[in-house]
Write a protein that binds this DNA or RNA. Sequence first.
RNA 1: GGCGGUGUAGCCAAGUGGUAAGGCAGAGGUCUGCAAAACCUUAAUCGUCGGUUCGAGUCCGACCCCCGCCUCCA
Length: 474
Amino acid sequence: MKVFNTLSRKKEEFKPLVPGQISMYVCGPTVYNYIHIGNARSVIAFDTIRRYFEYRGYKVKYVSNFTDVDDKMINEARAENTTVPKLAERYINAYLEDTEALNVEPATLHPRATHEIKEIIAFVKELIAKGYAYEVDGDVYYRAKKFADYGKLSDQNIAQLEEGASEHINDTEQQRKEDPIDFALWKAQKEPDEIAWDSPWGKGRPGWHIECSVMSTKYLGDTIDIHGGGQDLEFPHHENEIAQSEAKTGKKFVNYWLHNGFVTVGKDQEKMSKSLHNFVTVHDIIKEVDPQVLRFFMASVQYRRQINYSEDNLKQAQVILERFKNTLTNINYRLEDDTASQEDAALKQAVAQTKLKFEQAMDDDFNVQNALTAIYELLPVVNANTNLANVDKTELKQFKKLLCQWLNIFGIDCDKLVATKASAEDEQIDALVKKRDEARKNKDWATSDQIREQLKKMGITIQDTPQGTRWTRD
RNA sequence: GGCGGUGUAGCCAAGUGGUAAGGCAGAGGUCUGCAAAACCUUAAUCGUCGGUUCGAGUCCGACCCCCGCCUCCA
């Protein structure tokens, strides 16, 4: 199995530290607002990857943090006249609700920065002791140049970075640093009402990058298999994490760095972001769009590729899900009817071949497009079988099981996709269908069509097949 | 300016040297009392120019467009 490692900019053979087990850390959100579609993309991308590993039989320990203190949190709490912990609580809950709606598996652990203050302070102290960090008036900065490999992840060169950073020289913070590219590990409290913790450098709070180094090493170990996040985190966030962690432990921090592509919007395909005011929150959109459709739409694009968010593209995802639904529904009917099963060697072979193709594609850096294409090509073969007088019930059952396993990787639950029929209305519907069948026997098309219309209005679609009349909910 | 990504039919999208997968939409057809679902048939020379090669979307060079990162950001 191969994954694209940002560190080498190449696809590499994936080998976990411990056979059969995977340690995975994914940078989570700063919880000062609802997550938008772009945030969801990252969550879904790595959930899909995780699920594929699990499909492949790996045991995955998956850690994803909440950044529950930083400048944005403090500002938003002030603006809303609330406290940082209350703000965090609200949006952590919202995050959990929204991602559940998108059928994202809960992380093995969801640590929070503010719950790790002791460890953060100890980590920073060690960096100071090793000469990688220094204190200035209650702030602590990381001495970037001291770390020989600084810039290796994002291919940045130090001189250029310094040039860029010097443009922000107006910042009072910049003037306190030894070097413009140094970054904060610990920030001194600025206002008396600002949330802060006691530390050897006075009251303050952690910088942004340090929390991930601390939580990743604490919960998963000094070296982990996979660290994920959006492409915009490559620099400086992940670069800084490497510098901090490797300076402290002297070991390689992460074996495989995986970065997901952005969600873009509009004709110009601009990145969805809060500063551009072009974002849609998950909280809002799932009131209008079936969360399954949103989930499938985002999971069906390979994680490194850009996703263009549009109604048309969402619609396409919906149409595909409907095809799956129809096929599964038809299979369910044929498995239940009383026709004899007849072996279909071609079908059996096609299913086996598709499994091979699917896994080959996914093994190649999670090439979901090719994996899905393999399934799309199989559908007509399966559908053709379900139309026969005698279907291959054994093989259809096997296909159904496989398809549901595959869809599960994309976060689609077969049971939800094909809603079960049990409902208070069922008897009434069955009675109407029966009445219509009698009308059809008498060639009373007017009555028959009128009942079909009536059912349509109830959200029921009728299908007349050689095996009898079926109905499904829309 | 530095770093990275991208440009394939109306849309989504595979493809890493041998005469362009697949899906959606569209068109036509089969089945059906009519429908629904399904099935069958059907479209592009691959941003531009030049080079290497028997042969290039696929390698090399130049250029153009778009997007992102380089400051908070998934």
